[in-house]
Simulated assay, not measured.
Amino acid sequence: MKSKSFDPTKNRIVEKYLYKVQSKDFKNLENKAFIKHSTVKEDIPHLKDTIKVSGNTILILRPDSLRFQYYVNIEEPGIYEVDSDFGFGVSEALDSFELDSIKKSITERRYVQIFNCNKCPVIIDRDSIDYGILLTRNDRDVKIDQNIFGKEYYLDKFKKYFSN
């Protein structure tokens, strides 16, 4: 299956960073020096809040309802198809991937605070990532994938990342 042509970066300037946390105090994340914000056009809604994950986790990244509605309002081509294809592909892959030791979650939150991985703790500002998967494992670096494909693509990513 081919990747969809949805490219929100044409509507904004994006910088993506992964930072190692220098502090154990995770309150008021926006005020911490170790987080660099994405440079995004001011009219696009920004994601909010933080999700905390640890250990072996598959985290599905989706835009929140405000951001999705923004894309609908600006008539972003293919947004409904992309959202549907991503949701269907990831859901099918998650249903097919059988490992009890792996936590599975979906988030619309901006910051992902990760514990118990290689080079952890880390915080990821995913304001520039609308659709994707984030994989964590105790003994590996965090992996982020922003491609939009079908079930087999995601299932292959899960198997490769979580295999010994």
Rank of each mutant, 00 (worst) to 15 (best):
K4A: 05
F6D: 00
D7M: 08
P8S: 03
V14S: 11
E15M: 12
K16F: 14
L18K: 14
V21E: 06
Q22M: 13
Q22S: 13
S23F: 10
S23K: 09
S23Q: 09
D25P: 02
N28M: 13
K32G: 11
A33N: 14
A33G: 14
F34A: 14
I35D: 06
E42C: 11
D43N: 12
P45W: 05
K48N: 12
D49G: 06
T50Y: 05
I51A: 06
V53W: 02
S54Q: 15
G55A: 06
N56A: 12
L59N: 01
L59K: 01
I60G: 01
R62I: 13
P63V: 14
D64N: 14
S65E: 15
Y71T: 08
Y71F: 12
N73F: 08
I74K: 10
G78S: 06
I79C: 09
I79D: 04
I79T: 07
Y80C: 13
S84K: 14
F86C: 03
G87M: 07
G89C: 01
E92Y: 05
L94T: 04
D95L: 06
S96A: 14
F97T: 01
F97S: 00
E98P: 03
E98H: 10
L99C: 04
L99P: 02
S101C: 07
S101W: 14
S101D: 11
I102W: 00
K103H: 12
K103W: 06
K104V: 06
I106L: 14
E108T: 08
R109Q: 14
R110K: 15
R110N: 09
R110H: 12
Y111H: 05
V112L: 15
Q113K: 10
I114F: 09
C117H: 12
K119F: 15
P121H: 01
V122M: 11
I124V: 08
D125G: 02
D125S: 03
S128L: 09
S128N: 07
D130L: 06
L135Q: 01
R137T: 10
N138V: 09
R140C: 10
R140H: 05
V142F: 03
I144R: 02
I148Q: 02
G150S: 09
E152Y: 07
E152S: 08
Y153W: 09
Y153I: 03
Y153F: 11
D156A: 13
K157F: 00
F158R: 00
Y161V: 03
S163P: 00
